[in-house]
């Protein structure tokens, strides 16, 4: 059984003219436990919408999202929050670290709503990512690369079974982009987490053995291309 399955998932938004516009139509998609997969797609094609639906931050208009056999898209809000805290790690393009918290506290925050804060593990993760000397620094006191590493540690802090990465290197200098990506992949591999990464950066995509074009996943894109 696949760890993640999407069946007939559709999501639409009203267009500026007020008409319903389907941006996501995924008849079938799956990801095995511990696997890694890159999805290639240009900006604004609905990749983030897909990840938000998988994460339960958005509800699909139709279809179901299954995680380890459970239909998480049918979960109530509270259960979905608890599931997300325990099973999911999310790496954002802009990191979304909290400015009022130190690097260590940002990572601890990633644990609090799941199994609970584990200062030792949070510290060990940051040390592994070369930030042992930056534990008490606020995000504004860290370089962009260091901020990205804190966000990786936060996403992996709960040892989730699925990590979603939305353009994880999009804000990084090319010199550090691949280094950060390797760190993410290595952490996922060590913890056994499946990694679903969406990106438009060819260097990122080339690093993955398994990769698909977003248009192959999202038939709404195919229809749009045919129409064009």
């Amino acid at each position: 059984m696949a760890l993640l399955e999407l069946n007939g998932v559709r999501k639409g938004y009203p267009s500026p003219e007020g008409e319903a516009q389907t941006v996501l139509d995924v008849p079938s998609f799956s990801l095995e436990a511990g696997a890694e997969l890159a999805i290639a797609g240009t900006s604004g094609c609905g990749k983030t919408t897909l990840l938000n639906i998988v994460a339960g931050l958005l509800s699909p208009d139709e279809g179901e999202v299954r995680f380890d056999g459970d239909v998480v898209s049918d979960f109530g809000e509270a259960r979905r929050d608890a599931w997300r805290a325990k099973e999911l790690g999310y790496v954002f393009q802009t990191f979304h670290l909290l400015g009022g918290y130190t690097a260590l506290e940002n990572v601890l925050l990633g644990m609090m709503f799941g199994p609970g804060a584990d200062r030792g593990r949070a510290q060990a993760l940051l040390e592994r990512l070369g930030l042992g000397h930056r534990l008490s620094h606020r995000p504004s006191q860290l370089s962009i690369g260091q901020q990205q590493r804190v966000s990786l540690a936060r996403a992996l802090a709960n040892q989730p079974r699925l990590v979603l990465a939305d353009e994880p290197t999009g804000n990084l200098d090319p010199r550090f982009a691949l280094e950060a990506l390797e760190m993410l992949r290595s952490l996922c591999k060590d913890t056994g987490a499946a990694l679903l990464c969406v990106s438009h950066d060819p260097r990122v995509l080339d690093a993955f053995e398994e990769r698909v074009d977003f248009a192959d996943v999202n038939v709404a894109m195919q229809r749009e291309e045919e129409r064009a």
Binding site: E77, R84, F113
Partner: peptide, 16 residues
């Protein structure tokens, strides 16, 4: 607002 959204994405319940 962004802080609350991040907390929610990390699994914080609305009531939290």
């Amino acid at each position: 607002r962004r802080e609350f959204a991040v907390l929610r994405a990390l699994g914080a319940a609305k009531r939290t």
